[in-house]
């Protein structure tokens, strides 16, 4: 790798600003050239990939392996060295149930409560998120006035920190929050939104959709805009009703994007934590207790902490996510192959 000749960038203010960069480049040239002579171009590739691989290895792979080891230990000590090896005991404990469908019949009833809660949440949220994102994208695709403004408005919540999102909606939905205040002023009976089981669930779903739908709508919007306009004109000439245009033309051509969005939402939904934890804390009771919160509480927040059990639960959750990710990779590859044809 040789550095481009500094002569090319020398002109006016550009030269002054680029001078230190050019100097550094010139200084780096000899050692890097020497390295290339030794390692060849493949060697250079490895040299530049090494830092990132190291970071990935240390901060992703290593903790993953350590986590698996943790899941096979017991005790309350935090350090691996102080823990006792118990084999699959933690997993046995998690799976110790008379009936998997009834959390109350399980030893770790909170784990299974969290599992079924998360399953219910995932199903509902995925359906609604995809539908809302699709509708939003369809609306944003039209020739509205101030279209860019509306797109920014829908995307804005995506930029917010999840804690902020949870807090805002808690202030709106709590017993003495904005919504009840509005209802009271209108003469309607206020509802304790975050304390009624079903409303709390709806709030969890609704808030997380509000916070992220802009992102998925944007993906679908890009897909919609990739559909050639003359297809719609041809359909118009063909006398096609709007509903049929949507079902027979828009939707099939949007299918690859929809699939991507579906899998992304799915993977995200399984890991739901931040907004819900701030919004309801897992309540009322354990109505909105989801897997990630369970793992956090067992591993860190309760007395006494049980890192082994938490690790086991997180490994199980990770297994589900790996399956979903492989599914997503498969789809991505299929889209790629389709594109090449």
């Amino acid at each position: 790798m040789t550095v481009s000749s500094p002569r090319r960038v020398l002109s006016g203010t550009g030269a002054i600003l680029m001078a230190p960069v050019a100097l550094v480049a010139r200084l780096l040239d000899p050692p890097l050239s020497a390295l290339q002579r030794v390692g060849g171009t493949n060697g250079m590739a490895a040299f530049f990939l090494l830092p990132n691989m190291a970071v990935f290895g240390i901060f992703v792979l290593l903790p993953l392996v350590i986590n698996i080891i943790y899941s096979m230990t017991g005790g309350t000590a935090l350090f691996l060295a102080d823990r006792t090896f118990v084999g699959a005991a933690q997993y046995q404990r998690l799976f110790d149930c008379r009936s998997y469908v009834d959390p109350k019949s399980c030893t770790e009833d909170l784990f299974w409560t969290a599992v079924w809660n998360t399953a219910g949440f995932v199903v509902v949220q995925v359906v609604f998120m995809v539908v809302v994102a699709l509708v939003t994208a369809l609306v944003l695709n039209r020739d509205l006035r101030a279209r860019s403004f509306w797109r920014a408005v829908f995307f804005f919540p995506v930029l917010l920190s999840p804690v902020v999102v949870g807090l805002i909606w808690r202030w709106i939905l709590q017993r003495q929050g904005l919504l009840n205040f509005g209802l009271y002023e209108l003469g309607l009976t206020p509802v304790n939104w975050l304390v009624e089981r079903n409303w709390a669930f709806a709030a969890a779903v609704g808030v997380s959709i509000w916070a992220h739908v802009g992102f998925y709508a944007l993906i679908l919007l890009a897909g919609l805009q990739a559909i050639p306009k003359d297809l719609y004109e041809a359909a118009e000439m063909d006398g096609t009703r709007p509903a049929r245009v949507f079902w027979r033309i828009t939707l099939p051509l949007l299918a690859p994007n929809l699939l991507v969005v579906l899998v992304l939402v799915l993977i995200r939904a399984v890991q739901i934590f931040d907004e819900v934890y701030v919004l309801t804390g897992g309540g009322p009771g354990t109505a909105t207790l989801y897997l990630t919160q369970y793992i956090y509480e067992v591993g860190f927040a309760s007395f006494l902490r049980n890192p082994g059990l938490a690790s086991a639960a997180s490994i199980l959750m990770g297994a589900v996510l790996i399956v979903l990710t492989l599914f997503q990779l498969g789809i991505a590859r299929r889209n790629e192959m389709r594109g090449k044809r």
Binding site: L194, V195, G282, E297
Partner: peptide
């Protein structure tokens, strides 16, 4: 008030 006790799960303090 149900809320104080019910509005969180686990050992969370309210």
């Amino acid at each position: 008030n149900k809320e104080t006790w019910v509005s969180a799960a686990g050992t969370t303090y309210r």
